[in-house]
Structure formats: structure tokens, C-alpha cells
């Protein structure tokens, strides 16, 4: 008489096909455990048959699926190549833009600053000489009365006259 039967784990392992010498030996002599293992095996076999049958398809259909896979692989490869080309184009465009930007900025930085033409400075002495010469020059006939008036006034401040003449010189320039 067999007192210790196989555990549930041992029975399911045996039904799943696991080879353990102790289990195999026990199954040879214990019909009860063997019956349980067989019950599991039958259940699994039924499941396997159902799945295999439902997954069965004709050769035509497998061929169609095979072609579908090949087409998708081809399409994926083409897409990958196109993606690479597009990426390459984007990188090239970016580099070209960056290059143009660098050249432009470099050009702006290295271009000489606008030259300021030095303004001709007139020395005070030259200016005074010019004023004197203008004052002393003969006035046209039409302005004679005015020159007389100037002579009469005589007392005009030198500084104010100098200022007005200076302003005239500047405006003339």
C-alpha cells in the first residue's frame, strides 16, 4: 500500500512533462496519482487541440501572410532609408544655415567701423583774421549807408560783433 502520494506540484509538473525519477517511479506503482496526471494531460491535450485547430489555415492563406510580412519589411526598410535621407537633408540644411550665420556674424564683426572724417578745425587766430578781413572789406555801393551807420556807431562791442560774425561764418559753412 502506498501511504505518501505525489504532491499537487509534482503531479502538475509530471503532467507538464517534467522528468523526475522519484515521480516517474511513483507513477509506475500508484494508479491514483497516475489517474490524476492523466486527467491533467487530457485537459491540456484538449486545450492544445482546440488552439491548434483554430489557428489552422490553408497554405494559400499562410502564403498571403508571408507575402504581407515581406511587403511590410520592405516598406519599413524603404521608410527607414527615406527617413535617413530626410535626416541627412535636415542636417545639411542646418549646417548650411549655421555656416551662413557664422560667416555673416564674422563679416559684421570684422568690418571696419565707419570712419569719422575729422572736421576741419579753424584756429582762433585764423578765425579772427577772417573776421577782420570781412569787416575791413569794402561794402558795395548799395550798402554804403549801412557802412556809414556802422562807422557812426563805432562803439559796438568787439565781442558781440565777433560773435555775430562767427555765427555768420558757421552758417555760411
Amino acid at each position: 500500500m502506498i501511504s505518501i502520494h505525489l504532491s499537487d506540484e509534482e503531479i502538475t509538473a509530471a503532467a507538464a512533462g517534467e522528468r523526475v525519477p522519484r515521480t516517474a517511479h511513483h507513477l509506475q506503482i500508484c494508479s491514483e496519482c497516475q489517474g490524476q496526471v492523466q486527467m491533467y494531460r487530457d485537459s491540456l491535450a484538449e486545450l492544445r487541440q482546440d488552439i491548434c485547430y483554430s489557428a489552422g489555415r490553408s497554405a494559400i492563406d499562410w502564403g498571403r501572410q508571408s507575402r504581407g510580412i515581406q511587403q511590410r519589411i520592405l516598406a519599413a526598410q524603404i521608410e527607414k532609408t527615406q527617413g535617413r535621407n530626410a535626416g541627412f537633408a535636415v542636417v545639411c540644411a542646418t549646417l548650411a544655415f549655421a555656416l551662413v550665420l557664422v560667416v555673416f556674424i564674422g563679416f559684421r564683426n570684422t568690418s571696419p567701423p565707419p570712419s569719422h572724417t575729422p572736421t576741419a578745425t579753424i584756429s582762433d587766430a585764423a578765425l579772427l583774421d577772417d573776421v577782420e578781413s570781412r569787416i575791413n572789406e569794402d561794402l558795395p555801393d548799395a550798402l554804403q549807408p549801412a557802412s556809414l551807420l556802422v562807422d557812426e556807431m563805432g562803439g559796438i562791442q568787439w565781442s558781440s560783433r565777433t560773435h555775430s560774425v562767427h555765427v555768420r561764418v558757421r552758417s555760411a559753412q
Binding site: 486545450l47 482546440d50 488552439i51 483554430s54 490553408s58 497554405a59 492563406d61
Partner: peptide, 25 residues
Amino acid sequence: VRDPAATPEEHLLRRERLERASARI
């Protein structure tokens, strides 16, 4: 184009057995 070689009965039977297997697991 779904398995043109299979008859409607076969389609039905496959579906039934798939449902039965599915119910188990």
C-alpha cells in the same frame, strides 16, 4: 482574402473552438 480555401463551416468551427479554448484560460 481571409483564407479563401476554408469553407464557412470551417471558419465557424475554428471560431467556436477558439472561443472554447479562450473560455478555459
